[in-house]
């Protein structure tokens, strides 16, 4: 009986593993992958209103707490005075929050580094996977936003749209290891790829140019036109050479602060086919 049960369990495991491997394999197949993509987009469309509601509740609470911490503690005040101060602090924090948000939206609608048509939206959810660096925004195909479009913040490139539903899109951040962009450091072309916490340069062996710390990387527009030229990507923060004096590693810190990302602008730019 125990042997029969053991073989049944192993058979179950084998069947489920085969199904799973088949599903993973099918996901890499173009036609089936598109079908799966439609199902995923449908699920995300259903969930996005709940995500918006949760973000709407959690964001102000987090900001109010952050604001209150900055004001410090008034430990010697009596309870009534503390309560009054607390109310004032919350109100001020909310005012600052609203002002900052309005200011960000205003800057995003008049970005200094591009004159492309853009749509301003807000972040509704952080990464859904611990193994990818993505965010979800409240702009979708109904706003003219779709996969491949660059996403920027007030200070530079944020990432690119990888999937869209009618009302939401998933943005792959420049930090993600799947992300790559052609950049210019001065007059020299490099390719920068996401490293999880920042970006690093590739093709270092083929260049004799040594970037210097603080040098700003901008999109080159040369990678089949995937990104328009001139968008700030980040600044060089470290340059490492090997024993023979050749470049070994160059890291770039993104110009965008991802921990405070609330509003984004999607450039309605698609790479030429």
């Amino acid at each position: 009986m125990a042997i029969a049960r053991g073989s049944n369990q192993r058979l179950t495991l084998l069947i489920l593993l085969l199904i799973s491997v088949t599903v993973v394999t099918l996901d890499y197949h173009g036609t089936v992958s598109r079908g799966i993509g439609h199902v995923r987009n449908g699920v995300m469309s259903v969930l996005s209103p709940f995500q918006r509601a949760t973000t709407a509740v959690l964001h102000p609470i987090g900001d109010v707490f952050a604001g209150a911490i900055h004001y410090g503690q008034l430990s010697t005040q009596n309870n009534q005075l503390r309560a009054q101060i607390g109310v004032l602090q919350r109100r001020t924090a909310m005012d600052n929050y609203s002002l900052a948000a309005a200011h960000q939206v205003e800057i995003l609608s008049r970005l200094p580094f591009t004159n492309l048509t853009s749509v301003v939206g807000s972040v509704i959810a952080p990464a859904s996977s611990n193994f990818r660096r993505t965010i979800e925004i409240d702009l979708g195909t109904s706003e003219g936003v779709g996969p491949g479009m660059p996403v920027v913040g007030t200070s530079g490139l944020i990432g690119t749209i990888i999937s869209s539903t009618g009302s939401t899109s998933v943005v792959e951040l420049v930090l993600d290891a799947h992300f790559g962009v052609g950049v210019l450091l001065g007059p020299t072309y490099f390719r920068a790829v996401g490293s999880g916490t920042g970006l690093s340069l590739e093709q270092l062996q083929s260049t004799s140019v040594i970037p210097h710390v603080g040098q700003v990387a901008i999109t080159s527009g040369q990678d089949n036109g995937a990104y328009p030229p001139g968008i700030p990507v980040g600044a060089v923060t470290s340059v490492t050479k090997n024993a023979s004096g050749q470049l070994a590693r160059v890291t770039i810190t993104p110009s965008v602060n991802f921990s405070q990302l609330q509003y984004v602008s999607v450039l309605q730019w698609l790479a030429p086919a």
């Binding site: 495991l13 993973v24 996901d27 995300m44 859904s128 998933v170």
Partner: peptide
């Protein structure tokens, strides 16, 4: 997998083994 950006079926594959 329906809401993750990773390949579809990856979590299913991993979770089957983990559960077992």
């Amino acid at each position: 997998d329906l809401v993750l950006p990773t390949p579809f079926g990856l979590s299913a594959l991993v979770f089957v083994v983990i559960g077992y």
